[in-house]
């Protein structure tokens, strides 16, 4: 068995009286891709945001590489350099150029040398075919380009796991493919450990080692990607896949 990267035990989250997440358990090993599927409002985004401390949780525990996370803001702040995250909003820092966006955290947070980071940033930009945009400001880029750069920006910190929260949900359809391609590439070539919230079912089927199907903050199915798409166990999951044209 490969090394365990992330484990969640009996995680519950309440907003006041309302329970957003019920007893979530999951385990993710190095190189695995987990997709979180489910209808809107099922708690996917809340869950993935709990995994890098952007949301607090009410009870339960999260372990990173076997070590329990104590939940202090200092611990999370240090951990976030190892847990990369990309969001739906494809926001870059508007006051910085593309290269400055990518270099900011590695240089200022991780205190790495500017020269080394710059070289790496440029090679990453080449990889996503955006190396001609090095000194451009974000407002001149399309949504898809921004999202690809946001992925590069997260990768530049050398994360051990990447979280993707509906990263293609607000992109034009033709932009979606390029972004998904990069994510697939990360999984296949880099064996990056990833958790992906998505509504792109074809993509999920191709990429997921593991699927968590959520509804109303509860895990209804926790199974392999193959199994979930071929033989969903619950009616709810079957309905969901049908509604997604599967």
């Amino acid at each position: 068995m490969t090394e365990e990267i992330l484990r969640v035990e009996n995680l519950n989250k309440y907003y006041g009286d309302w329970q957003a997440l019920h007893d979530i358990n999951l385990t993710l090993h190095k190189g695995e891709v987990l997709t979180l599927l489910g209808p809107s409002g099922s708690g996917k985004s809340t869950l993935i945001r709990c995994l890098n401390g952007l949301e607090t949780f009410s009870s339960g525990a999260i372990y990173f590489k076997g070590k329990k996370i104590d939940g202090s803001s200092k611990t999370w702040q240090a951990l976030r350099q190892k847990i990369g995250m990309v969001f739906q909003s494809y926001d870059l820092f508007p006051n910085l150029t593309v290269i400055e966006n990518i270099m900011l955290a590695p240089v200022k947070v991780q205190k790495r040398s500017e020269k080394e980071v710059r070289a790496e940033a440029i090679s990453l930009l080449k990889r996503v075919e955006l190396d001609e945009y090095v000194d451009i400001y974000p407002r001149e880029l399309s949504g898809g380009q921004k999202q690809r750069i946001a992925i590069v920006r997260a990768l530049a910190l050398h994360p051990e796991i990447m979280l993707f929260d509906e990263v293609t949900a607000s992109l034009d359809p033709e932009m979606v493919r390029g972004v998904l391609q990069i994510m697939a590439d990360l999984a296949k070539k880099d064996h990056m450990t990833m958790i992906i919230v998505t509504h792109e079912m074809n993509f999920a089927r191709q990429i997921a080692d593991q699927v968590l199907f959520l509804e109303d903050g509860k895990i209804l199915e926790n199974t392999s990607g193959k199994e979930f798409f071929a033989h969903p166990q619950t009616d709810r999951a079957r309905d969901f896949l049908t509604s997604m044209d599967f």
Binding site: G53, M85, F87, S89, A150
Partner: peptide
């Protein structure tokens, strides 16, 4: 400043 910008900064490990 939009909350998503703050999320971005935090997710990049900034204190």
């Amino acid at each position: 400043v939009s909350p998503s910008q703050i999320d971005d900064g935090k997710a990049l490990g900034m204190n």
